[in-house]
Design a protein around this nucleic acid. Sequence first.
DNA 1: ACCTGAACACCGTTCAAGT
DNA 2: ACCTGAACACCGTTCAAGT
Lengths: 212, 212
Amino acid sequence: MSTSTSPKDRAAPLRADAQRNYDLLVAAADAEFTAHGADVPLEDIARRAEVGIGTLYRHFPTRDDLLAKVLTDGTAIILERGRELLSGSSPGEDLIQWIRELADYTATYRGLTAALANSYVSETGTRLCTSCDAISALGSELLARAQAAGEIRRDAQVVEIILSAHSAAWIGEQTKDPGAVRRLLAILFDGLRVVTPKPVSKPRSKRVKVRR
Amino acid sequence: MSTSTSPKDRAAPLRADAQRNYDLLVAAADAEFTAHGADVPLEDIARRAEVGIGTLYRHFPTRDDLLAKVLTDGTAIILERGRELLSGSSPGEDLIQWIRELADYTATYRGLTAALANSYVSETGTRLCTSCDAISALGSELLARAQAAGEIRRDAQVVEIILSAHSAAWIGEQTKDPGAVRRLLAILFDGLRVVTPKPVSKPRSKRVKVRR
DNA sequence: ACCTGAACACCGTTCAAGT
DNA sequence: ACCTGAACACCGTTCAAGT
């Protein structure tokens, strides 16, 4: 919540009133997203911030930019947690724990999962997407480590892992039943723990080259 | 595609022109949904059917009604398949196969998953929801049978099962990667196959009733 | 340099007028 | 009984005019 950094996170010196409006917008956005979900009319946010709608667009050209800003703290935390878990003692469970926390993060606002998933595969590199990239990078590391330790199935890829967390959160949004999320994740995790034996590399079996 | 039944599926005698418009609307809706996804402007559908927008609303008060109508055939098929599988030889795999087909069904139109999932938990009993009820009923049967056979974990519930299919389809929509869907389902299914041993019902262990 | 809000575009939904 | 499309509401986005 200590978010009075400037738009580009550089020390781009904003005029005093602009900085003030910027901060008001971020606070208003957080409040509105929390209260009415990630699809709340942008106009409502501007109104709450007591700012013209044009000002909102000036600072945040797209809704995703606003979402990304408001999620900054959460994103930092989930990334930090990932790094911590990366040096945990049980690679498989470390990955799993991270996914659990990722699902929570994804549920920050109602309707957020759709926005996140969209940006996750959108062509245009939005801000939200940038966070996603960092998150999948970390996911890759955690996954690779767990797979190397032979604790997680080798045919799993980051996309599914990450989007699984998303979809669990999505299911939570739809059903409003935290139990469903918990149970689904439990199934998923058990599935992830299933390790197919390494294809018995037949010691130099005479592979005959066949014609045609 | 043989869909010239009347709105309420009764022989409610529609006036000839009304029936014609109705059929045109269904055909147009199918075409538009296929081409532009489940969110296509209703106006586009009316235009393609060469019918006033009011006529569309008269026949289909909500977008869900239109979706439900256009999905009738698919819904019937998935239900029928479920019944077939119900008398399959391998309860666990029968359930799993059904989920696979359910995921396909859910992907009929781009953007359909969201609509389906929404209606799945919506309060107001829309048409779409009605289909969903039938589907979960069948899912319950398949699941119960598989669990009774000891082939599927006992803590799984229908909601997750169904919504898992939905979310797999959803992931397909997002990533446009059929491989991701396949891999996710594989993980999920392995998770479903994990059967925790029945809590060893200690043969009449002397359960002492404790005070307080 | 930044803010404002009117103006425009777009889509959903209703309803008075028509046949 | 049914159809039509103008009319209204709503939200996103832009931009000319203002400070």
